Computed example of a mutant assay.
Amino acid sequence: MTKTKKPEFRPDEFVVYPAHGVGKIVSIEEQEIAGFKLELFVIHFEKDKMTLRVPTHKATEVGMRQLSTPDIVNKALDTLKGKARVKRAMWSRRAQEYEQKINSGDLLSIAEVVRDLHRTDDQREQSYSERQLYEAALERLTREVAAVSGADEAQAQKTVDSVLTSRAA
């Protein structure tokens, strides 16, 4: 049986946790839970003012990953330039798929949601739930673009917006 090498996550490093997006590992601590010693990553999500503790041995299993490479970020931005692909399925089914893509933590899937739900001013209005999903996906995308490029979120937002508006032109 070959042991899979677990990626090394370190304190002060940004990581992506699928259900919450980009967070920063503040420390690695040991806690005793039900008589077992557990090593935990302590991850802080600045925007949500939330701290999460993830057992180090479960990190990859739950989908925690390092930030995307600049190459993947560029692919995600290219995805935004594509034509929206909207299935003819009922909204509830599509909404469920969008939600799964957002929570997958996969940057390219998140970019697809942003692309598919983006509306220009002359297009029909978004429903409340469409807007919620769009904003959640956009926020995840923007945060990771910011973390990877080392820019602040406002700058990353401008980058994403310019790609979306260039597509509409």
Rank of each mutant, 00 (worst) to 15 (best):
K3D: 04
K6F: 07
K6W: 04
P11I: 09
H20V: 03
G23Q: 11
G23M: 12
K24N: 03
V26W: 07
S27Y: 07
Q31R: 09
A34S: 15
V42A: 11
I43D: 07
M50R: 12
T51E: 06
L52Y: 06
V54C: 04
V54Q: 09
P55T: 08
T56E: 07
T60I: 03
Q66T: 02
L67Q: 03
S68Y: 10
S68P: 12
N74Y: 03
L77T: 04
L77P: 03
K81V: 01
G82I: 13
K83R: 15
A84H: 08
V86F: 10
R88I: 07
A89T: 13
A89M: 13
W91P: 13
R93F: 15
R93G: 12
Q96L: 14
E99M: 00
Q100W: 10
Q100M: 13
N103H: 06
D106R: 05
D106T: 08
L107D: 07
L107W: 10
L108V: 13
S109F: 13
V113L: 05
D116R: 05
R119P: 10
T120W: 10
D121K: 05
Q123N: 11
E125W: 09
E130R: 01
R131D: 12
Y134A: 08
A136R: 15
L138T: 02
E139S: 14
R140N: 09
R140G: 09
R140E: 05
S149D: 04
S149R: 09
E153F: 01
V163N: 00
L164D: 06
